[in-house]
Design a protein around this nucleic acid. Structure first.
Length: 119
DNA sequence: AGAATGACAGGAA
DNA sequence: GTTCCTGCCATTC
């Protein structure tokens, strides 16, 4: 039956690409959360899918370091090589990192933003 | 099939 | 401010 074909809007290649695009769209000096990226792709609740895409990514140009947990923490365990590399890259573009954490914009895609944002 | 595993999130304590 | 705990989604054993 054809239901099976259309029944998987995610998990396919285009979803993967949309996520990568959303990550590339995060401006230099700014950050976004895994869940935020997912929402922007119409994939609410799939933060872990974004994490998976990042893990499997090999593109050196992808600004992977701009993606943080929703509370602003770097996802890698503190002290690890990757965690420090991420902090280094963020600071290199002017982002303040303190104790492996970044102050999140506090709005991103939250209800607060939806209600209060201009436009 | 059931359990374990993650570059997660959100709310409770 | 924390840390802890539960819920989630998708994949792998």
């Amino acid at each position: 039956m054809l239901t099976r074909i259309m029944a998987t809007p995610e998990g396919n290649e285009s979803t993967h690409l949309r996520i990568l695009d959303a990550i590339r769209a995060v401006p230099r000096g700014e950050v976004a959360s895994y869940g935020g990226i997912a929402r922007r792709c119409g994939l609410a609740g799939r933060a872990r899918l974004v994490a998976r895409v990042l893990r499997e990514n090999d593109d050196a140009d992808l600004p992977w370091h701009r993606i943080l947990r929703s509370d602003g923490r770097i996802a890698f365990a503190p002290g690890t090589r990757q965690s420090r590399e991420q902090a280094r890259r963020l600071r290199a573009e002017g982002v303040l990192v303190r104790n492996g954490r970044v102050r999140m914009a506090a709005e991103e895609d939250t209800l607060h933003a939806a209600v209060w944002a201009p436009r």
